[in-house]
């Protein structure tokens, strides 16, 4: 009985904090933008933390709302923005990878379902080491720039800032 209570407490804790865990990999603040219909590509963002001592790789993603879920990267060169498949994403030991507007993002195509603000959908990410991690993706407005619960970890945002600066410099050349 005690064990059940303890397990239940753990489950509730993770549900409340919105953190999905599989071993050393944590996926946080998963959100998507609302969509018009199903024809346009959808987009989802999340943060992956690797607390382990080994590097891990995100190999794929699946969700019931779309037949295809693929990590893409928006890259700017000379002011021109291109989106290209990003391939497998490596998460260094002790490191993190942020999927956020203007950079890495999960593109959802062949969508089965309209994405409605306020709703959510499951997303299962497959990692080379950690295996499958399922998260609940909260749907924000179409013009959103961060997760609907306001979890925009700005203080942890330095990596992305530098990334943006690099892009700007590229343009200035």
């Amino acid at each position: 009985m005690r064990l059940i209570v303890a397990l239940l407490a753990i489950v509730i804790t993770f549900t409340l904090t919105g953190v999905a865990l599989a071993g050393d990999i944590k996926v946080k603040h998963a959100w998507a933008r609302a969509s018009i219909g199903t024809e346009r590509p959808g987009v989802a963002y999340f943060m992956i933390y690797n607390d382990g001592a080994e590097s891990d790789r995100l190999l794929g993603a699946k969700t019931p709302v779309a037949e295809r879920a693929m990590v893409h990267e928006s890259l700017m060169k000379n002011g021109v923005m291109k989106m290209r498949p990003a391939g497998d994403i490596e998460i260094a030991p002790g490191g993190k990878v942020m999927l956020e507007p203007g950079g890495l993002h999960l593109m959802l195509t062949f969508r089965q379902k309209k994405l409605v603000e306020g709703e959510s959908f499951p997303l299962t990410l497959t990692f080379e080491q950690a295996g499958e991690v399922t998260v609940d993706v909260k749907i924000a407005g179409m013009a959103a720039k961060m997760a609907p619960n306001g979890h925009h970890e700005h203080h942890e945002n330095h990596g992305q800032q530098e990334h943006h600066q690099e892009k700007h410099q590229e343009h200035h050349e």
């Binding site: 933008r33 018009i36 346009r40 893409h72 507007p101 013009a143």
Partner: peptide, 16 residues
């Protein structure tokens, strides 16, 4: 373009 999932909504948000 309106089929642009990542960059255009982000920039339109900035314009707003």
């Amino acid at each position: 373009y309106t089929y642009c999932p990542d960059v255009c909504p982000t920039e339109l948000l900035v314009l707003g």
